[in-house]
Write a protein that binds this DNA or RNA. Structure first.
Lengths: 190, 190
DNA sequence: GTCTATATAACGATAGAC
DNA sequence: GTCTATCGTTATATAGAC
Protein backbone atom coordinates (compact mmCIF):
# COMPACT_ATOMS: atom_id res chain seq x y z
CA UNK A 1 0.00 0.00 0.00
CA UNK A 2 1.34 3.40 -1.00
CA UNK A 3 1.77 6.26 1.46
CA UNK A 4 -1.05 8.72 1.18
CA UNK A 5 -3.31 5.99 -0.11
CA UNK A 6 -6.97 6.15 0.85
CA UNK A 7 -8.93 3.19 2.14
CA UNK A 8 -12.56 3.44 3.08
CA UNK A 9 -12.46 7.21 2.82
CA UNK A 10 -9.66 7.49 5.41
CA UNK A 11 -6.13 8.61 4.53
CA UNK A 12 -3.56 6.01 5.56
CA UNK A 13 -0.04 6.73 6.80
CA UNK A 14 2.85 4.36 6.16
CA UNK A 15 3.01 3.44 9.82
CA UNK A 16 -0.70 2.75 9.94
CA UNK A 17 -0.67 0.54 6.87
CA UNK A 18 2.33 -1.43 8.18
CA UNK A 19 0.29 -2.20 11.28
CA UNK A 20 -2.79 -3.14 9.28
CA UNK A 21 -0.72 -5.37 7.03
CA UNK A 22 0.89 -7.22 9.93
CA UNK A 23 -2.41 -7.53 11.77
CA UNK A 24 -4.04 -8.93 8.65
CA UNK A 25 -1.52 -11.76 8.45
CA UNK A 26 -1.72 -12.50 12.17
CA UNK A 27 -5.52 -12.47 12.30
CA UNK A 28 -5.58 -15.00 9.49
CA UNK A 29 -3.15 -17.28 11.29
CA UNK A 30 -4.25 -16.98 14.92
CA UNK A 31 -7.68 -15.42 14.73
CA UNK A 32 -8.61 -12.00 16.05
CA UNK A 33 -8.89 -13.05 19.68
CA UNK A 34 -5.65 -15.01 19.42
CA UNK A 35 -3.65 -12.02 18.22
CA UNK A 36 -2.26 -9.55 20.76
CA UNK A 37 -0.93 -6.05 20.34
CA UNK A 38 2.46 -7.38 21.33
CA UNK A 39 2.42 -9.89 18.46
CA UNK A 40 1.55 -7.14 16.00
CA UNK A 41 4.27 -4.88 17.38
CA UNK A 42 6.85 -7.68 17.25
CA UNK A 43 5.91 -8.52 13.66
CA UNK A 44 6.84 -5.02 12.46
CA UNK A 45 9.74 -4.56 14.90
CA UNK A 46 8.35 -1.79 17.08
CA UNK A 47 6.93 -1.57 20.60
CA UNK A 48 3.31 -1.68 21.65
CA UNK A 49 3.45 2.04 22.41
CA UNK A 50 4.26 2.80 18.79
CA UNK A 51 1.24 0.80 17.72
CA UNK A 52 -0.95 2.65 20.21
CA UNK A 53 0.24 5.92 18.77
CA UNK A 54 -1.52 4.97 15.52
CA UNK A 55 -4.58 3.21 16.89
CA UNK A 56 -6.15 4.09 20.23
CA UNK A 57 -7.54 0.58 20.80
CA UNK A 58 -7.22 -2.93 19.46
CA UNK A 59 -10.79 -2.74 18.19
CA UNK A 60 -9.74 0.11 15.91
CA UNK A 61 -7.11 -2.13 14.35
CA UNK A 62 -9.62 -4.91 13.86
CA UNK A 63 -12.02 -2.53 12.17
CA UNK A 64 -9.24 -1.12 9.99
CA UNK A 65 -8.23 -4.61 8.85
CA UNK A 66 -11.82 -5.51 8.08
CA UNK A 67 -12.35 -2.31 6.13
CA UNK A 68 -9.20 -2.86 4.11
CA UNK A 69 -10.54 -6.29 3.16
CA UNK A 70 -13.89 -4.74 2.36
CA UNK A 71 -12.10 -2.30 0.07
CA UNK A 72 -10.71 -5.24 -1.89
CA UNK A 73 -14.20 -6.63 -2.36
CA UNK A 74 -15.42 -3.17 -3.38
CA UNK A 75 -12.63 -2.95 -5.96
CA UNK A 76 -13.65 -6.28 -7.47
CA UNK A 77 -17.26 -5.18 -7.52
CA UNK A 78 -16.34 -1.90 -9.23
CA UNK A 79 -14.42 -3.71 -11.94
CA UNK A 80 -17.44 -5.97 -12.38
CA UNK A 81 -20.02 -3.23 -12.84
CA UNK A 82 -17.68 -1.61 -15.37
CA UNK A 83 -18.34 -4.56 -17.68
CA UNK A 84 -20.50 -3.95 -20.76
CA UNK A 85 -23.30 -6.35 -19.80
CA UNK A 86 -24.76 -7.98 -16.66
CA UNK A 87 -23.60 -11.44 -17.70
CA UNK A 88 -19.97 -10.38 -18.01
CA UNK A 89 -20.27 -8.41 -14.76
CA UNK A 90 -21.43 -11.49 -12.93
CA UNK A 91 -18.57 -13.57 -14.30
CA UNK A 92 -15.97 -10.99 -13.32
CA UNK A 93 -17.46 -10.63 -9.85
CA UNK A 94 -17.70 -14.35 -9.22
CA UNK A 95 -14.17 -14.95 -10.45
CA UNK A 96 -12.81 -12.05 -8.43
CA UNK A 97 -14.54 -13.18 -5.25
CA UNK A 98 -13.15 -16.68 -5.59
CA UNK A 99 -9.67 -15.32 -6.23
CA UNK A 100 -9.89 -13.08 -3.17
CA UNK A 101 -11.09 -15.89 -0.94
CA UNK A 102 -8.32 -18.22 -2.10
CA UNK A 103 -5.62 -15.58 -1.83
CA UNK A 104 -6.60 -14.72 1.73
CA UNK A 105 -7.70 -18.22 2.75
CA UNK A 106 -8.06 -18.18 6.52
CA UNK A 107 -8.46 -14.45 6.93
CA UNK A 108 -11.93 -13.85 5.55
CA UNK A 109 -13.70 -16.29 7.81
CA UNK A 110 -11.52 -15.33 10.77
CA UNK A 111 -12.95 -11.86 10.36
CA UNK A 112 -16.56 -12.64 9.56
CA UNK A 113 -16.76 -15.13 12.43
CA UNK A 114 -15.40 -12.73 15.02
CA UNK A 115 -18.38 -11.95 17.26
CA UNK A 116 -17.40 -8.35 17.88
CA UNK A 117 -16.80 -7.66 14.21
CA UNK A 118 -19.97 -9.49 13.27
CA UNK A 119 -22.10 -7.24 15.46
CA UNK A 120 -20.29 -4.20 14.14
CA UNK A 121 -20.94 -5.01 10.48
CA UNK A 122 -24.55 -6.01 11.13
CA UNK A 123 -25.17 -2.30 11.72
CA UNK A 124 -22.50 -0.89 9.43
CA UNK A 125 -24.31 0.88 6.60
CA UNK A 126 -21.41 0.92 4.09
CA UNK A 127 -21.02 -2.84 4.53
CA UNK A 128 -24.72 -3.52 4.08
CA UNK A 129 -24.86 -1.29 1.02
CA UNK A 130 -21.83 -3.00 -0.48
CA UNK A 131 -23.36 -6.42 0.05
CA UNK A 132 -26.62 -5.31 -1.52
CA UNK A 133 -24.78 -4.06 -4.60
CA UNK A 134 -22.79 -7.29 -4.72
CA UNK A 135 -25.84 -9.52 -4.51
CA UNK A 136 -27.56 -7.45 -7.17
CA UNK A 137 -24.77 -8.12 -9.65
CA UNK A 138 -24.49 -11.74 -8.60
CA UNK A 139 -28.18 -12.63 -8.73
CA UNK A 140 -29.70 -9.97 -10.93
CA UNK A 141 -32.26 -8.92 -8.35
CA UNK A 142 -32.55 -7.25 -4.96
CA UNK A 143 -34.91 -9.17 -2.68
CA UNK A 144 -34.83 -10.95 0.69
CA UNK A 145 -34.50 -14.12 -1.35
CA UNK A 146 -31.52 -12.83 -3.29
CA UNK A 147 -29.91 -11.64 -0.09
CA UNK A 148 -30.08 -15.08 1.46
CA UNK A 149 -28.74 -16.68 -1.70
CA UNK A 150 -25.91 -14.17 -1.79
CA UNK A 151 -25.10 -14.62 1.88
CA UNK A 152 -25.10 -18.38 1.46
CA UNK A 153 -22.83 -18.24 -1.54
CA UNK A 154 -20.31 -15.87 0.03
CA UNK A 155 -20.40 -17.96 3.22
CA UNK A 156 -19.90 -21.09 1.15
CA UNK A 157 -16.88 -19.70 -0.67
CA UNK A 158 -15.37 -18.26 2.49
CA UNK A 159 -16.00 -21.40 4.48
CA UNK A 160 -14.86 -23.87 1.86
CA UNK A 161 -11.40 -22.35 1.45
CA UNK A 162 -10.63 -22.92 5.13
CA UNK A 163 -12.49 -26.19 5.63
CA UNK A 164 -10.39 -28.82 7.43
CA UNK A 165 -11.09 -31.39 4.75
CA UNK A 166 -9.87 -29.19 1.93
CA UNK A 167 -6.63 -27.88 3.37
CA UNK A 168 -4.61 -30.27 1.25
CA UNK A 169 -6.20 -29.08 -1.99
CA UNK A 170 -4.03 -26.86 -4.15
CA UNK A 171 -5.21 -23.39 -5.14
CA UNK A 172 -5.81 -24.12 -8.82
CA UNK A 173 -8.02 -27.13 -8.17
CA UNK A 174 -9.85 -25.31 -5.42
CA UNK A 175 -10.47 -22.36 -7.69
CA UNK A 176 -11.87 -24.43 -10.54
CA UNK A 177 -14.18 -26.39 -8.29
CA UNK A 178 -15.40 -23.35 -6.41
CA UNK A 179 -16.29 -21.61 -9.63
CA UNK A 180 -18.09 -24.66 -10.96
CA UNK A 181 -20.11 -25.12 -7.81
CA UNK A 182 -20.86 -21.42 -7.43
CA UNK A 183 -22.24 -21.39 -10.98
CA UNK A 184 -24.42 -24.36 -10.25
CA UNK A 185 -25.57 -22.65 -7.09
CA UNK A 186 -26.58 -19.59 -9.07
CA UNK A 187 -28.20 -21.67 -11.78
CA UNK A 188 -25.71 -20.48 -14.38
CA UNK A 189 -24.40 -22.53 -17.31
CA UNK A 190 -20.85 -23.83 -17.30
CA UNK B 1 -1.03 -30.60 20.92
CA UNK B 2 -4.09 -31.47 22.96
CA UNK B 3 -5.72 -34.69 23.97
CA UNK B 4 -9.51 -34.37 23.85
CA UNK B 5 -12.06 -35.47 26.41
CA UNK B 6 -13.54 -38.67 25.09
CA UNK B 7 -16.14 -38.94 22.36
CA UNK B 8 -19.50 -40.72 22.44
CA UNK B 9 -19.71 -43.96 24.37
CA UNK B 10 -17.46 -42.94 27.23
CA UNK B 11 -19.29 -41.83 30.37
CA UNK B 12 -18.85 -38.20 31.34
CA UNK B 13 -19.19 -36.91 34.89
CA UNK B 14 -21.92 -34.42 35.78
CA UNK B 15 -19.30 -31.81 36.63
CA UNK B 16 -17.61 -32.25 33.26
CA UNK B 17 -20.81 -31.98 31.27
CA UNK B 18 -21.88 -28.88 33.20
CA UNK B 19 -18.61 -27.25 32.16
CA UNK B 20 -19.01 -28.32 28.55
CA UNK B 21 -22.57 -27.04 28.50
CA UNK B 22 -21.61 -23.64 29.89
CA UNK B 23 -18.60 -23.38 27.59
CA UNK B 24 -20.77 -24.21 24.60
CA UNK B 25 -23.09 -21.28 25.30
CA UNK B 26 -20.21 -18.90 25.96
CA UNK B 27 -18.23 -19.90 22.86
CA UNK B 28 -21.31 -19.23 20.76
CA UNK B 29 -21.75 -15.79 22.25
CA UNK B 30 -18.17 -14.54 22.62
CA UNK B 31 -16.16 -16.88 20.45
CA UNK B 32 -13.52 -19.32 21.69
CA UNK B 33 -10.78 -16.73 22.13
CA UNK B 34 -13.17 -14.35 23.85
CA UNK B 35 -14.18 -16.85 26.50
CA UNK B 36 -12.03 -17.27 29.60
CA UNK B 37 -12.02 -20.00 32.21
CA UNK B 38 -13.24 -17.43 34.71
CA UNK B 39 -16.33 -16.80 32.59
CA UNK B 40 -17.02 -20.51 32.39
CA UNK B 41 -16.52 -20.94 36.14
CA UNK B 42 -18.80 -17.98 36.90
CA UNK B 43 -21.52 -19.32 34.60
CA UNK B 44 -21.81 -22.54 36.59
CA UNK B 45 -21.16 -20.92 39.97
CA UNK B 46 -17.81 -22.51 40.83
CA UNK B 47 -14.22 -21.32 40.92
CA UNK B 48 -11.57 -21.69 38.25
CA UNK B 49 -9.83 -24.32 40.35
CA UNK B 50 -12.90 -26.54 40.18
CA UNK B 51 -12.89 -26.27 36.41
CA UNK B 52 -9.19 -27.11 36.27
CA UNK B 53 -9.89 -30.19 38.34
CA UNK B 54 -11.94 -31.54 35.40
CA UNK B 55 -9.90 -30.24 32.47
CA UNK B 56 -6.17 -29.71 32.65
CA UNK B 57 -6.16 -26.94 30.02
CA UNK B 58 -8.53 -24.64 28.20
CA UNK B 59 -7.75 -26.45 24.96
CA UNK B 60 -9.19 -29.63 26.45
CA UNK B 61 -12.47 -27.83 27.06
CA UNK B 62 -12.52 -26.47 23.53
CA UNK B 63 -11.97 -29.95 22.11
CA UNK B 64 -14.64 -31.41 24.40
CA UNK B 65 -17.17 -28.83 23.24
CA UNK B 66 -16.33 -29.45 19.61
CA UNK B 67 -16.62 -33.19 20.03
CA UNK B 68 -19.98 -32.85 21.77
CA UNK B 69 -21.20 -30.89 18.75
CA UNK B 70 -19.71 -33.50 16.46
CA UNK B 71 -21.70 -36.14 18.35
CA UNK B 72 -24.90 -34.27 17.48
CA UNK B 73 -23.99 -34.35 13.81
CA UNK B 74 -23.16 -38.05 14.10
CA UNK B 75 -26.57 -38.69 15.68
CA UNK B 76 -28.32 -36.97 12.79
CA UNK B 77 -26.22 -38.95 10.34
CA UNK B 78 -27.08 -42.21 12.09
CA UNK B 79 -30.78 -41.48 11.94
CA UNK B 80 -30.34 -40.70 8.24
CA UNK B 81 -28.60 -43.92 7.28
CA UNK B 82 -31.32 -45.83 9.16
CA UNK B 83 -33.78 -44.69 6.48
CA UNK B 84 -35.05 -47.32 4.01
CA UNK B 85 -33.59 -45.68 0.87
CA UNK B 86 -30.81 -43.24 -0.07
CA UNK B 87 -33.29 -40.55 -1.14
CA UNK B 88 -35.00 -40.53 2.26
CA UNK B 89 -31.61 -40.67 3.99
CA UNK B 90 -30.48 -37.57 2.16
CA UNK B 91 -33.64 -35.68 3.05
CA UNK B 92 -33.36 -36.60 6.73
CA UNK B 93 -29.70 -35.63 6.82
CA UNK B 94 -30.20 -32.32 5.05
CA UNK B 95 -33.14 -31.42 7.24
CA UNK B 96 -31.30 -32.44 10.40
CA UNK B 97 -28.19 -30.47 9.47
CA UNK B 98 -30.22 -27.33 8.83
CA UNK B 99 -32.07 -27.77 12.13
CA UNK B 100 -28.80 -28.21 14.00
CA UNK B 101 -27.26 -25.14 12.41
CA UNK B 102 -30.30 -22.99 13.19
CA UNK B 103 -30.63 -24.27 16.74
CA UNK B 104 -27.01 -23.55 17.52
CA UNK B 105 -26.69 -20.49 15.29
CA UNK B 106 -23.46 -18.80 16.24
CA UNK B 107 -21.77 -21.78 17.82
CA UNK B 108 -21.04 -23.95 14.81
CA UNK B 109 -19.15 -21.33 12.89
CA UNK B 110 -17.47 -20.02 16.04
CA UNK B 111 -15.99 -23.49 16.38
CA UNK B 112 -15.17 -24.29 12.76
CA UNK B 113 -13.55 -20.91 12.27
CA UNK B 114 -11.32 -21.14 15.32
CA UNK B 115 -7.81 -21.51 13.89
CA UNK B 116 -6.57 -23.84 16.62
CA UNK B 117 -9.59 -26.08 16.37
CA UNK B 118 -9.42 -26.00 12.61
CA UNK B 119 -5.88 -27.36 12.58
CA UNK B 120 -6.82 -29.94 15.16
CA UNK B 121 -9.72 -31.32 13.13
CA UNK B 122 -7.77 -31.26 9.87
CA UNK B 123 -5.78 -34.17 11.33
CA UNK B 124 -8.51 -35.66 13.50
CA UNK B 125 -9.39 -39.06 11.97
CA UNK B 126 -12.85 -39.47 13.59
CA UNK B 127 -13.85 -36.07 12.24
CA UNK B 128 -12.59 -36.80 8.74
CA UNK B 129 -14.32 -40.17 8.72
CA UNK B 130 -17.57 -38.62 9.91
CA UNK B 131 -17.42 -35.99 7.17
CA UNK B 132 -16.76 -38.65 4.54
CA UNK B 133 -19.79 -40.62 5.67
CA UNK B 134 -21.86 -37.45 5.71
CA UNK B 135 -20.86 -36.39 2.22
CA UNK B 136 -21.53 -39.90 0.93
CA UNK B 137 -25.14 -39.74 2.11
CA UNK B 138 -25.52 -36.16 0.94
CA UNK B 139 -24.07 -36.56 -2.53
CA UNK B 140 -24.28 -40.27 -3.21
CA UNK B 141 -20.61 -40.62 -3.97
CA UNK B 142 -17.21 -40.40 -2.31
CA UNK B 143 -14.75 -38.40 -4.41
CA UNK B 144 -12.61 -35.29 -4.11
CA UNK B 145 -15.39 -33.56 -6.02
CA UNK B 146 -18.06 -34.70 -3.59
CA UNK B 147 -15.89 -33.64 -0.68
CA UNK B 148 -15.59 -30.11 -1.97
CA UNK B 149 -19.31 -29.95 -2.64
CA UNK B 150 -20.02 -31.25 0.83
CA UNK B 151 -17.60 -28.87 2.48
CA UNK B 152 -19.06 -25.96 0.54
CA UNK B 153 -22.59 -26.87 1.49
CA UNK B 154 -21.85 -27.32 5.19
CA UNK B 155 -19.87 -24.09 5.15
CA UNK B 156 -22.74 -22.36 3.39
CA UNK B 157 -25.31 -23.51 5.93
CA UNK B 158 -23.06 -22.71 8.88
CA UNK B 159 -22.08 -19.35 7.48
CA UNK B 160 -25.55 -18.26 6.39
CA UNK B 161 -27.13 -18.72 9.81
CA UNK B 162 -24.73 -16.22 11.35
CA UNK B 163 -24.37 -13.82 8.45
CA UNK B 164 -24.72 -10.16 9.46
CA UNK B 165 -27.30 -9.54 6.74
CA UNK B 166 -29.54 -12.38 7.88
CA UNK B 167 -29.64 -11.78 11.62
CA UNK B 168 -33.11 -10.30 11.39
CA UNK B 169 -34.56 -13.35 9.63
CA UNK B 170 -36.73 -15.61 11.80
CA UNK B 171 -35.89 -19.27 12.18
CA UNK B 172 -38.80 -20.65 10.15
CA UNK B 173 -38.06 -18.49 7.12
CA UNK B 174 -34.36 -19.17 7.39
CA UNK B 175 -35.00 -22.90 7.57
CA UNK B 176 -37.25 -22.97 4.51
CA UNK B 177 -34.82 -20.90 2.44
CA UNK B 178 -31.77 -22.86 3.51
CA UNK B 179 -33.42 -26.13 2.55
CA UNK B 180 -34.52 -24.77 -0.81
CA UNK B 181 -31.07 -23.41 -1.63
CA UNK B 182 -29.30 -26.51 -0.37
CA UNK B 183 -31.46 -28.65 -2.65
CA UNK B 184 -30.67 -26.46 -5.59
CA UNK B 185 -27.01 -26.65 -4.65
CA UNK B 186 -27.18 -30.45 -4.68
CA UNK B 187 -29.14 -30.53 -7.92
CA UNK B 188 -32.15 -32.04 -6.19
CA UNK B 189 -35.80 -31.37 -7.11
CA UNK B 190 -38.01 -29.22 -4.84
C1' DG C 1 -15.35 -31.84 44.00
C1' DT C 2 -14.82 -27.61 45.58
C1' DC C 3 -12.61 -24.15 48.01
C1' DT C 4 -8.91 -20.07 49.18
C1' DA C 5 -4.84 -18.37 47.90
C1' DT C 6 -1.24 -17.61 44.93
C1' DA C 7 2.33 -17.91 41.15
C1' DT C 8 3.55 -16.26 36.76
C1' DA C 9 2.76 -14.32 32.65
C1' DA C 10 0.40 -11.62 29.26
C1' DC C 11 -3.06 -8.49 28.28
C1' DG C 12 -4.77 -3.67 26.80
C1' DA C 13 -3.61 0.80 27.58
C1' DT C 14 -1.08 5.27 29.18
C1' DA C 15 2.70 8.81 30.53
C1' DG C 16 6.38 11.22 29.31
C1' DA C 17 11.19 11.53 27.24
C1' DC C 18 13.50 11.92 22.85
C1' DG D 1 7.08 8.15 15.37
C1' DT D 2 9.25 5.54 18.51
C1' DC D 3 11.06 4.60 22.83
C1' DT D 4 11.26 2.97 28.16
C1' DA D 5 8.63 2.20 31.91
C1' DT D 6 4.66 1.28 34.12
C1' DC D 7 -0.35 0.93 35.54
C1' DG D 8 -4.24 -1.98 36.50
C1' DT D 9 -6.41 -6.04 34.99
C1' DT D 10 -6.96 -10.41 33.42
C1' DA D 11 -5.20 -14.72 31.76
C1' DT D 12 -3.86 -19.71 32.43
C1' DA D 13 -2.53 -22.68 35.75
C1' DT D 14 -1.11 -24.82 40.53
C1' DA D 15 -0.81 -26.00 45.70
C1' DG D 16 -2.90 -27.54 49.43
C1' DA D 17 -6.93 -27.46 52.86
C1' DC D 18 -11.60 -29.39 53.48
Amino acid sequence: MVEGAVVGGTPVSAAKSRIVSAATALFGEHGVGGTSLQMIADAIGVTKAAVYHQFKTKDEIVIAVAQAELARVAAVLDSAVAQPDPMAAREVLLSGMVDLAIARRHLESALTSDPVLNRFFAQHEPFLTLMDRLYLVLLGEDSPDARLSGAMLTAAIGGAVMHPMLQGLDDAALRAQLLRLARRFLGLPG
